[in-house]
Design a protein around this nucleic acid. Sequence first.
DNA 1: ATGAAAGCGCTAACAC
DNA 2: GTGTTAGCGCTTTCAT
Lengths: 329, 329
Amino acid sequence: MVTIKEVAKKANVAVSTASYALNGIKKVSPETKEKVVQAARELNYRKNGFASDLKRNSTKTLALILSDLSGPFYSELIRGVQDVATDHGYDLIACSAIGGENSTAAKFLTEHRVDGCIVLAHNITDEMLKNVAHHNFPIILLDREIEVDSTVHVRVNNKKGGFKATEYLIQNGHTDIAFVSGPSNSYDNKMRFAGYQEALQAYNIELQNKWIVSGNFTREGGESAANILAAQDQVPTAIFFANDEMAVGGMEAFQKRGISIPNDISIIGFDDILEAKYVYPKLTTIRQPKYEMGASATHIIFQMLKNEEVNPTFELHTDLIIRESVKKL
Amino acid sequence: MVTIKEVAKKANVAVSTASYALNGIKKVSPETKEKVVQAARELNYRKNGFASDLKRNSTKTLALILSDLSGPFYSELIRGVQDVATDHGYDLIACSAIGGENSTAAKFLTEHRVDGCIVLAHNITDEMLKNVAHHNFPIILLDREIEVDSTVHVRVNNKKGGFKATEYLIQNGHTDIAFVSGPSNSYDNKMRFAGYQEALQAYNIELQNKWIVSGNFTREGGESAANILAAQDQVPTAIFFANDEMAVGGMEAFQKRGISIPNDISIIGFDDILEAKYVYPKLTTIRQPKYEMGASATHIIFQMLKNEEVNPTFELHTDLIIRESVKKL
DNA sequence: ATGAAAGCGCTAACAC
DNA sequence: GTGTTAGCGCTTTCAT
């Protein structure tokens, strides 16, 4: 590997001068600079980023920690992160938390390899986060329940969103409303369910346990939930799927059985994924401001990096997106 | 920041001993090891990954360079890369090539921040690749045209795939076959088109220029291509969309116009994206072995890292996936 | 404007 | 088994 030393030698200058020249620091004369740059080019010199980061004690890069690099995840959110990072002249890398303690994510979280992290992964333990959180190592948690010191949370008001979804169904004349839930360890799911409960209660509708079925946030889960619901002797007139993925699967399962959406059953989802407006009928849902989540999280990182005081939690709100999957009774 | 020096001091040992203990190197006695680990824990010591990488001159991490972190991309492919990297005890990070010369990708490509790269991005120039390629810095290029020294290519036989798609249409009795192309600078597109041409020629069917329309590889492009085709006085009986994304858009556009697939027009795509089997009718297409592409690319990196001789190009083949969007005439 | 040299935090060769 | 120390490649202070 060719080092700056060799470049300096070839250009007949000291390493310090070479460093200045290569980094565009003004105090070096145009001619010397040219000499150095030329030598570097001839030797095909590539700086060693680590050495320089080590010395500077800053990496100018942020890590985005995902459950799994191969998705699925919200691309809008990532775009939000990316845009803000770029605006600040920072680089962004994404890494996977598969493997927990031994994951790439853990390596970046613990080994000072980045200046800050945005965590969008549930397979990284609270424990680990706690150990790593540090006043000058900003960590932003997306959609997480726990409060970890020196950590900030950005989340959507899932409960209010769940309420809105359920209320919209009620306002359309529905009272027999099922809830298809995500995994029980999901904070999002828990809150959406809480919103569902609250809305039923607010309108004096009794919650029916037989209509609470689990779908694991996956398309297949949605299908099987729909099948379970359809097989009961009393079928609900509307279903609130705790995410769109399940809703899409559920719609398909119903249609396979000859049950028409929204004529026979109304459906509302949560998230507003890209597909929501491409399915038939177009899915009515609760939109999460995904881009804003990513952008806010990243903004907060930079505030923290500047040692500004920030709130420990940051909450965004949801919107009801009315499309075609809910019928007025 | 607490360094290994402080840990050593607290544990009353030399830094080397601390280093050995922390890295699980056997030559240190259990008691000393315990002392060190304990001290590290108490001080909340986190190693500086750069310092250690710098010293070891190896990062044990690979970079996956994508056009844009926020997708879209083939998750199957990434899974292939991820699996193989993990098997070898390597970490994987993904980074974006947005910004070209100034992108994060460029930083990782040029600054020795990883041990190898897999490039799945068209916004990184051949020029840059050429400058960076080095016999002990493996770079694998996916779906690229150019031959760059010290670089290996993994690609799918797009031409043969294009041939297969077209031939299947012909074997189903079609002779009026349109081609909806991707961007003209795409190597994939070019080769798929070549396969289309070759098949027509092989079966003595004349190529009709009015039936070659551009769709830019996007869903919207597919829609507008379908509309253009539908508006002509002579409409083809079958269409080969150069990717599934466009095919899905095209199907939708036709259906909006009351044209039935496959009764009025047969459609075949390319890629076999996830959605292909969810649309109605299910899309007949040419499958790319995406997982295998990722896995092979990564395997090759490790071969190169071990200084084994590897072929400069590695070609995978496609499969015809017959579903419901092509009718026998 | 340029150079000499210290030192970032770590690993590993070497000495004991 | 443990300690001393050189040095990875770079930036930056200080002297000139």
